[in-house]
Design a binder for these strands. Structure first.
Lengths: 303, 303
DNA sequence: TATCCGCAATCACTTTTTATGATTGGCCCA
DNA sequence: TGGGCCAATCATAAAAAGTGATTGCGGATA
């Protein structure tokens, strides 16, 4: 809503990475570079200190960030108030969400939403990313919530949170004695993975490739079609598995599963809202605004 | 600095005219129409009520305007703070201004500016619009202040005030008995005009053309090269003249000259800052910010 | 009541901006 | 000293913004 270049700057300044910002904005890294460079030229003010492959905000950049933060907040408030005008505190909202989100992330959020917007009737479709997008295009739903990073021109993507895929195993599993392993140690561990074609497997594959590990190098014991199946299997085996942190929060807390971190490897993905361009605002807009405002609180509160 | 479409909306909302906003923004009216229409589509919210050839803000538009006002203020503040970073409270600022501005509008503004920024050395070049632009391009000045509406790609135009060209005559002149005349009555009045090529004559010609009067229809007694010459001549003749309101404020107040309005005709032009794109910010930026903040106060205070 | 006239809307077309994919080059770490 | 990560660069493709000419509607004029 506010000047796109400033939005790009704001994102880079928060992530302190051109590449990460590009992902979050759903554009490429060269585009981000160019926008920032143009801002710097326009202001005649270096916004980032580039030391090697790391960047840091300059003093001027910090000052600009203060302003863009405010601009961002006001823009959000504007979007929200616009959505309020769409007689939108009642009616029906058809949602579609991919599995992890629908099972682990959305329920507490939906509950709180319903607590406030009692006259909004929520309908939830549960399917994979591809199917959610199709449903959106067919107008069976007005708002989708998905993981990953597809990109269709006719769909409007709004990132709202990040997810981390973690390596977990049963606490009964001797492999979980350590807190951290090296990437190469991974090769000898029997693994459970989500099925080919799933967003989870895709992002795991991609991240591993960056450390030089191919999928075929791993000792994959089994591909399973749901997080619940994986968790259940883990309890009865010496396998470990890559799985969304949100899917295992409870098990981590009660001590039945444990996260093992991997040196120099972290696997992230985004949660995105998707809408048809024509359909942004209204009830979907209200929900999006609500989710952005509340998801942190909700996730912290529910555990 | 903030999203261009919102800026367009903000301008239209303040002027309540697409055409006027287009002038102020230095773009064409169809462009303004398009931007507003796209905003309305995006928000799915009618921003203006179009009743005939008049427009009014809708309730939603009013709400949006509140937000864009804030956004505009913050954006200005950001620009200002950026310009402050350019070690800009001292140094030399070379200004160029066209005649009317240099004589009547700028002096009180410059005085106040100097009162606050005592370590800034001001240099003022006085020339016509064309020459000011040339001086800017040759980097003899960093900031120009001109009337009218030329448009070069390599120059950055920032409107900061409006001027009105009025018809005036000596109070001794029987023609000034009336307060208002019809356009056709103009044809029989002996007139003084600024010289061909001047911005003043150009905007007068253009405005008259819209009421169907050609320059050649008028009884022009003389073309004079300065406002002072015109005022002086007026005192000793039965002529009337088109002249900037700023040039005659004192004479109007002390009763020696009188403004006669013309039915259905008002002649406006803008005062603009011009800078090289590369040179925006810094001292020019500080001065621009200062001028926008203060010119109303200053003009009111000095009369 | 017919006729201007001012103003926003529309249209076909041009220019400018923005985004992309592929590649380069510098720095860090092993 | 070599591999990998990350920002910068470049040529090119896609999209957006702007323009000039024109249309069409409503309000004011005579």
């Amino acid at each position: 809503m506010f000047d796109y270049r400033l939005k790009v700057f704001d994102t880079v300044a928060r992530r302190l990475s051109f590449t990460k910002a590009a992902e979050e904005l759903c554009i490429t890294q060269p585009a981000v570079t160019k926008h920032v460079k143009e801002l710097e030229k326009q202001f005649r003010l270096r916004l980032f200190e580039r030391t090697g492959n790391r960047i840091a905000l300059t003093q001027g950049g910090l000052m600009v960030l203060k302003h863009t933060s405010i601009l961002r907040d006001i823009s959000r408030q504007l979007e929200y108030e616009i959505s309020l005008l769409h007689e939108s505190r009642r009616g029906t909202l058809n949602l579609g969400a991919s599995t992890t989100l629908a099972q682990y992330v959305l329920p507490p959020l939906l509950a709180r939403f319903h607590g406030i917007y009692r006259d909004v009737q929520l309908h939830m479709l549960n399917a994979n990313t591809e199917q959610i997008e199709q449903a959106l295009l067919r107008k069976e739903i007005e708002l989708g919530i998905i993981e990953g990073d597809s990109k269709r021109r006719e769909i409007n993507y709004t990132p709202f949170a990040r997810d981390e895929i973690v390596l977990v195993g049963s606490t009964k599993n001797p492999l979980t004695k350590k807190d951290e392993i090296r990437p190469d140690e991974l090769l000898s561990i029997p693994l459970l993975l989500r099925e080919p074609g799933s967003g989870t497997l895709e992002v795991v594959t991609h991240a591993l490739k960056n450390t030089g590990i191919k999928l075929s190098d791993l000792s994959v014991e089994m591909y399973l079609g749901s997080s619940e199946a994986i968790k259940s299997y883990l309890m009865h085996s010496h396998c470990m598995a890559f799985i969304s942190q949100h899917a295992v929060i409870n098990e981590i807390e009660n001590g039945s599963l444990k996260i093992i971190s991997i040196k120099k490897l972290s696997i992230h993905r985004q949660f995105l809202f998707i809408t048809l361009h024509a359909d942004d605002g209204g009830l979907p807009g209200v929900f999006k605004w609500f989710a952005v405002q509340n998801y942190r609180d909700v996730l912290l509160a529910s555990h």
